[in-house]
Write a protein that binds this DNA or RNA. Sequence first.
DNA 1: GCCAACGTTGGC
DNA 2: GCCAACGTTGGC
Length: 157
Amino acid sequence: MNHWLLKSEQDVFSFDDLLRAPRRTTHWDGVRNYQARNTLRDLMKMGDRCFFYHSNSDPTGIAGICEVVKEGYPDHTAFDPRDPHHDPKSVREAPTWFMVDVKAVAALPRILTLEELKRVKGLERMVLLQRGSRLSVQPVTAKEWAIICRHAGVPAV
DNA sequence: GCCAACGTTGGC
DNA sequence: GCCAACGTTGGC
């Protein structure tokens, strides 16, 4: 099983929004970056766990854990001219952009803020903490996952 | 293929 | 709101 981190702005779609969604599930649409697209399309597998991170928020940090419940499939919002994420270059016959479905597993007992994560030993090389890191879908190593779960006081599953 | 200009992300 | 870092676009 692999682990990932997904970024969302709290006031656009928060972890609480995911908890309130039907079946606590949503499709992770709107990603328009090729590296993140490759991860969504090729690497994220059923049951993989993801940290749900609030970027550009107050506070900024990891709010909860979710899991992949549907593997990569075309992001239909790219086909819709009225959608803010519309991309005319992506067509149904040859989609450019992909998404997965994720389901909420549990909120963390408290939000682990970015500031706090920066001080946790063992996370120095985490993608999230690298200078200028903007990837909205990114890998988390098994070690990093375990360290963060222990820090949050939740089982590392 | 280079690279300047531009738009976006996201921490602060 | 500012601005550094990054990815993409497009002229050449």
